[in-house]
Amino acid sequence: MADMSGASTPAGATDMLDGADGVRRRDWIHIAALSTAGVGGASLLFPLVSQMAPSADVLAQSTSEVDVSAIEPGQAIKTTFRKQPLFVRRLTPKEIEEANAVDVGSLRDPQTLAERTLVGSENLLVTMGVCTHLGCVPLGAAAGEDRGDFGGYFCPCHGSHYDTAGRIRKGPAPKNLSVPEYAFKTDTVIRIG
């Protein structure tokens, strides 16, 4: 281009684009300007991405309180934690026995019942009611529901069976029902989250 019609090509273009003398003098200013613009553009992504994360009001909702005093042994209640179902179950001595009789080493997700409950209240099993397979709500919390082959919970979507400690025993789910962080706020009320 410059060779063919150099006479009519603006000199600036020749210097800048072709580097007529072989050295791109002061090219750094273009590089600096472009990279600064790149940094600016990239930092715009931060608010645009961050706005999709949970907002302040959603994060603030992330604790729940449950009164557990009225749950009889063998019963469970279904409540919510972070807009997800939460199962709180009072185990009978027989159920505790069943759970403890299992060889932990043979489990897909090895955990003992004691590891899944609070010290001093081993008969209170608090788990999320979210199947670890694909997120359905397992049956077994309400009276009369199918509790599966192991007397705990049964997820009807894809047939995962959980035992009385909420551990996965059969079916496609990879993990035990997760136990959220919680503590006794008073003797009868637990605070989750």
């Binding site: 931060f46 608010p47 645009l48 706005q51 907002s55 302040a56």
Partner: peptide, 10 residues
Amino acid sequence: MRNVNYGWML
């Protein structure tokens, strides 16, 4: 304006 992250800015 109050809760969404950077909502006020947007």
